[in-house]
């Protein structure tokens, strides 16, 4: 079907440009992180990543990520079900609002939580009365992470559910299946791969969030420092090897996520 005669040269030039661009822009920074992390030997690397504060930062990051991904998964499933299975007033507004966190700068995301729960907020006296600390504490970090990753899962699910249509669920409902059975037997098998894919993306973003978390964290070593914040701290203290060593853990995570993503995409295509 090839009608173009000159496509041979153009093809390899374009592939060449793409390969060079991706190598310089994407692969080189990755290799550099790993290279610098091990530059001073494995011993230095191990000392840096097993440091007490490093371990606490990893622990906090995992804790925050698990909570944020869990809440966003619940939200994503219900929101996508709600927006694709039912017609109601205000649906368009609701659907537009879900995507809002994508367009808001992470710094502004942090700012709005400071304004909501901080000292100048109307809620502050009540929160203080109840002894709840949100700003410059772990709950603030969790909230900011949820905000930043809010649309990730629902955005993966909505197109799949829209493409699937509602006939199967309607038939099941008319035959007397209850809501949970319908979801488990009909909806879930369709969205399985998209859901996993969304969870993977959401996990990556939640672990790596920097701007919003930076506003809301009190930057207390071992208490409110997540991995990206700890990296910043090391970097600003000119401990470059340490910063890159902790970074290399996040690089491993990113590479694993990309591999998982490819597998999930392949599985999803195979099922469909």
């Amino acid at each position: 079907m090839k009608v173009r005669k000159n496509s041979g040269a153009a093809k390899w030039i374009l592939i060449g440009i793409s390969a060079v661009f991706l190598t310089v822009m994407l692969i080189l920074p990755l290799i550099y992180v790993v290279f610098t992390a091990f530059e001073e030997g494995v011993g230095v690397f191990l000392t840096a990543v097993t440091d007490e504060y490093a371990r606490k930062a990893v622990g906090l990051t995992l804790e925050v990520t698990v909570i944020a991904v869990f809440i966003n998964t619940v939200f994503g499933i219900f929101a996508s079900f709600c927006l694709t299975r039912f017609e109601f007033r205000g649906k368009k507004v609701l659907s537009a609002m879900i995507d809002l966190p994508f367009t808001v700068s992470p710094i502004i995301a942090g700012l709005i939580y400071v304004l909501t729960f901080g000292r100048q907020s109307a809620l502050y006296p009540y929160l203080q009365g109840a002894g709840i600390k949100i700003i410059f504490a772990v709950p603030g970090i969790v909230l900011a992470t949820i905000f930043v990753t809010f649309p990730f899962i629902s955005r993966e699910l909505i197109p799949v559910l829209n493409a699937q249509g509602t006939e199967e669920e309607e038939a099941a409902a008319l035959m007397g299946a209850n809501g949970f059975t319908i979801f488990r037997k009909i909806t879930f098998p369709h969205i399985k791969w998209a859901l996993l894919y969304g969870i993977v993306l959401c996990t990556a973003r939640a672990m790596g969030e920097f701007g919003a978390v930076s506003v809301l964290s009190g930057h207390l070593r071992g208490k409110t420092n997540t991995m990206p914040l700890y990296i910043e701290l090391l970097y600003q203290g000119y401990d470059f090897t340490g910063a890159f060593a902790v970074s290399s853990l996040l690089v491993c995570m990113a590479v694993m996520i990309l591999i998982l993503r490819s597998i999930l995409e392949y599985q999803g295509k195979k099922d469909a």
Binding site: L201, F210, P228, S247, A254
Partner: peptide, 14 residues
Amino acid sequence: ELPFALPTAVAGIS
């Protein structure tokens, strides 16, 4: 998708 998966701070220092 690497820039989505790689934390921005890591990309920044690298």
